[in-house]
């Protein structure tokens, strides 16, 4: 994660969480947070191949 950030990937795009199958509320909370952070950054511009079209 540190190396990704080091070479110029925004750290908000990378998240690690430990969520038990019993922690549904935590799961929802984390997913919401992650989505918000990534949305705020906008689409990824770096580290993707121009040819890579998602079908």
């Amino acid at each position: 994660m540190n190396l990704m950030e080091h070479m110029g990937i925004e750290s908000d795009r990378i998240h690690f969480s430990w969520i038990s199958s019993a922690e549904s509320t935590k799961f929802v909370k984390v997913v919401k947070e992650v989505t918000e952070k990534v949305k705020a950054l906008g689409p990824q511009q770096h580290f993707k191949k121009n040819d890579a079209k998602v079908a």
Partner: peptide, 9 residues
């Protein structure tokens, strides 16, 4: 070959 989704080169 490099394939992305359903198109390849």
């Amino acid at each position: 070959d490099e394939i992305h989704g359903k198109s390849g080169k």
